[in-house]
Design a binder for these strands. Structure first.
Lengths: 375, 375
DNA sequence: ATGAAAGCGCTAACAA
DNA sequence: TTGTTAGCGCTTTCAT
């Protein structure tokens, strides 16, 4: 059962040529007599030779491997989407990826970077880096770095999304349906530094989303009501129930004297909680209240199917990989430019948004009959 | 900017010792004078030396890398969960993983195996392999193989879940609530060979789930009604809307003369469609009809929160990795045994299941008012 | 058009 | 207790 792997040398011996010649055939480069090529190809086939990428990597000082550091592919499918894009694009070009889920923990992230350096990856992708020190670490090791979605202050290549425009589009959509009391549930910078699980809710992304909301209201002369704004967490990693703050805040909103006619949640996960709270109160979506989400992760699977702002998750991942590959082909003269890819969002209208209920309908206060959150 | 990586030799020179000595310090093995150790450690620190795992792999003929071939981490979070478990357990022990999403395509799967072989991974995990030929391929290359969740006929190590028991528990739960007309929506073997996207719905897993349903009904002398049984697909990969068959079949069920009082969907994704269909008909869950799912992926995020049969996704992944690691430490004498890890499910009761509506309540036929599936 | 050989960075057997 | 050295399998320069 001990089948030592076939090496170039074995093939060379079988074909009666040198290893150099076999290599030439293998990579189809340099001059090879048609005759010899045939021989070598036969030998390769017969021996079942498979190139040894490890040896190749050592020799060429290039592993054709990308490290991908991200929050976690579970439970937020956004990261899974990006990771999928990264893997598919890499695979397509003969590269591989080592993915590391850091769960918002800076220490794990650091360990991840160290691991990747030791494994001599050619580049590291950070999707929402936790600690900029770690980005620096990668950079100092001489690696290519691309920051995705939520870049730190450290300048590197970046792939981001226009959250501001997406957010504005969401709010405009609601306004166009006649809504004026539009509540906002986001993830707040306040919480960011207290709990590692919040990393993804950092300034830039959530900041843009909130600005888009605020500015759009103002653009239409709608007052920004603090009572209708809440910042919480998307989810926690402790238990796998729906532990985010969408549910709690929505219940609060529903008990307001004049409750909102629409809720904008900056993440589909938050919206899931909102839908649950509303259902408990026996209100209908969108008849009594409209909901709009962000990301288009859970959205298509919710009841009712959720209107949301779609992020091109896999494209984000693919774009990041493409930057890495382009740099590889670059002569060093242009290697100083920082690529800044910015992708746009898309409003996906489904069934959770509808025209605002008429202004004069009495808004009776809702008292939930049951608390459905078990377990 | 061209910082050639520091090597053992550099460290050795700086510390005034041989590379062998540095290696000894590095791995803390063999005899080292306390004095020398200090020197070497200082040199390592000063030079910022980082071990080169690529060279190590070549020399030791062991890469400490696991290849993981799976359907796709999107959109079914089950795979993301398994992949997460795999990565976390591997990382914990200093191993890395190369993950490959094959999207149900046997050709991609084959390419994946070839890639992994060329990269000289020490083991390959198949989570629901598409084509058993590919499993054979890995085996023939002398690699360790673990089949996860949905093993092919090829004997290898396996990590599976007791789907039968889980399914039976789900049905018993419904029966205990007074349900007797319990519909079933599963993924059928009929479809498996027609479309690569169905791979995950192969015989063993879905077979067990269906048997659990059938047997449990019979155990309670409840007739198995073919009108209440449907086989479809979880989802397709073409568009990212909720494209599975849960919605369609549920609408059919709801238009039956005597509609079911409960629906058992063998996958949370199917259940999402069911909930959407029911909402459209303005029925309440669980008051008018109960729903139970499988997997506990989307379940906590649905409205109402879904009762489901939980699969220990990350544990599945971790168990698979542990098998690989154990084999590594094994002397070859016992290396012939095939590990067969079987994990159990857990019924998670949430708010989508309740007592059956009274037998004599009139079941008027439902005519949906709107079709909410846009886009 | 082909071959010889050095060396990528590390480990481990053997020598000292 | 430490050093020397032969590879692991490949690429690539330089000869021929």
């Amino acid at each position: 059962m001990e089948k030592r792997n076939v090496t170039l040398k074995d093939v060379a011996r079988k074909a009666g040529v040198s290893t150099a010649t076999v290599a030439r055939v293998l990579h189809d480069q340099g001059y090879i007599a048609e005759e010899t090529r045939k021989q070598v190809e036969a030998a390769i086939r017969e021996t079942g030779y498979r190139i040894n990428v490890v040896a190749q990597g050592l020799r060429k000082q290039q592993t054709l491997t990308i490290g991908h550091i991200l929050h976690s592919i579970m439970p937020n499918p956004f990261y899974a989407g990006v990771a999928l894009g990264v893997e598919q694009e890499a695979m397509k070009h003969g590269w591989s990826v080592l993915m590391i889920n850091v769960q918002g923990d800076a220490r794990r992230e650091r360990l991840g970077v160290e691991t990747l350096i030791q494994r001599r990856v050619d580049a590291i992708l950070f999707t929402s880096a936790v600690d900029e020190t770690n980005v620096r670490l990668a950079l100092d090791a001489g690696l290519q770095v691309v920051q995705v979605q939520q870049p730190t202050a450290i300048p590197t290549h970046q792939v981001t999304v226009d959250n501001y425009v997406g957010s504005a589009a969401a709010v405009e959509h609601l306004i166009s349906l006649g809504h004026r009391r539009i509540a906002y549930i986001g993830a707040g910078p306040t919480y960011v530094h207290q709990d590692p699980a919040f990393v993804e809710c950092l300034k830039s992304v959530e900041g843009e989303r909130f600005s888009g909301y605020r500015d759009t209201l103002q653009k239409y002369q709608i007052p920004v009501d603090e009572q209708l704004i809440a910042f919480g967490r998307y989810y926690t990693l402790e238990h796998d129930n729906n532990s985010g703050d969408g549910y709690t805040y929505t219940r609060q909103f529903l008990q307001l004297d004049r409750r909102p006619t629409a809720i904008f949640a900056t993440c589909d996960i938050l919206a899931t909680g909102a839908l649950q709270a509303i259902y408990e109160c026996s209100l209908r979506v969108p008849d009594d209240i409209s909901i709009i989400g962000f990301d288009n992760t859970y959205a298509p699977y919710l009841t009712p199917p959720l209107t949301t702002v779609e992020l091109p998750m896999t494209d984000i991942g693919k774009a990041a990989v493409r930057i890495v590959l382009e740099q590889g082909q670059q002569d060093t003269s242009t290697s100083w430019v920082q690529h800044q890819v910015r992708l746009s969002t898309r409003l996906v209208v489904r069934s959770s948004t509808g025209v605002a209920p008429s202004e004069h309908a009495p808004t009776t206060q809702i008292v939930p009959t049951t608390n459905m959150k078990k377990e």
